[in-house]
Nucleic acid binder design. Structure first.
Lengths: 173, 173
DNA sequence: CTAAAGTTTCACTAAAAACTGAAAAAACAG
DNA sequence: CTGTTTTTTCAGTTTTTAGTGAAACTTTAG
């Protein structure tokens, strides 16, 4: 008969693998998503070596992706007293995870888009031809939208979990 | 002296190129983003050959990405009377573009995630160990969140432009 | 039907991204 | 300091994804 611990390990491995696959579809690399899943579902913080072992990946790969996760604010470094090694621990609160992701994506995707679109809108401001006006108009629309999205991201980031849910539910029924 | 048309062409080319770069960061391939930018900022629908010419890409590439854009609902096929060729025309309304993207991403990213997480929550339902309970709890949290996100996506998709802005502004100031 | 125009597919190539493993650098205990 | 442990970097390799171009297929005009 199979113990509960074995069954859990199996299910967890399945989750980690699946999360990895989904990561690739999200435009995140597989390893990073897998490490995240692993840390998110584990009781204790893990060392680089433990992560390497568990996922059968190289040190370089483990290291880079752990550090990337730290940069995303999804994982933090902890140290155990008397030990020299770094351990990694994931943020587990789902709303907090969401906030961090929104924040980063805003920074990486929205902000650069805004710059581009702003520039194009500015440079076509006074155009007189039909094409020029249409292009300018399109850029203005886009700019407005990106600004809006940007603002929304900021707001989401500043709402605490419960409040957000409440408001959103009121808004959308 | 440089004419307005020339300047516009230059700016537009810049926009198309930039949009392509941003596409890659969004996890969308460069060509697809470029074609989208091209069609979004042009007055008329374009044929496959025109797109090939403008972006200096192969027929296969142009074809595949145009069809992908059609599948995303961001571009539609139009035919000119008396002509046999297919022409492609982009949705230009920014809010409508946003809705389509939300809809597709939900289908491609949220729905599969929900399945995975649901499964893991279900399979660990009755677990008795500390680890088992913790894992289950984490899965339940995730499931709730994904369901919430899913619902929000649907709601966004069903709101008309003006209404959405209004409501959102009220909500977030 | 036949031929021309247009669309789709696909084996192959090119480019980009991810990963490895080992060496270098940094941190630290004694 | 010196030796040991741990972290970081990076040149080279593998894997994955994107793109090419020509052939196959489809559609329609004559």
């Amino acid at each position: 008969m199979k113990g509960e611990a074995d069954k859990l390990r199996e299910i967890r491995e399945g989750f980690v693998a699946q999360w990895g696959v989904m990561g690739t579809q999200w435009g995140i690399n597989r390893t990073m998503a897998q490490i995240h899943a692993l840390l998110m579902t584990g009781a204790d913080a893990m060392s680089t070596d433990e992560v390497m072992e568990e996922l059968a990946i190289s040190r370089g790969n483990a290291h880079t992706n752990l550090k990337d996760l730290v940069n995303w604010g999804l994982v933090r470094i902890v140290t155990k007293k008397g030990e020299r090694k770094e351990y990694f621990e994931a943020e587990k609160d789902v709303w907090e995870i969401f906030r961090r992701i929104v924040e980063q994506r805003k920074r990486r995707e929205l902000d650069p888009a805004l710059q581009t679109v702003e520039g194009c809108a500015e440079e076509t401001k006074g155009m007189k031809t039909k094409e020029g006006k249409a292009f300018h108009q399109q850029m203005v629309q886009l700019e407005e939208f990106v600004r809006f999205a940007s603002k929304m991201s900021d707001r989401v980031g500043s709402l605490p979990h419960g409040k957000a849910m409440q408001l959103a539910m009121k808004l959308f029924g």
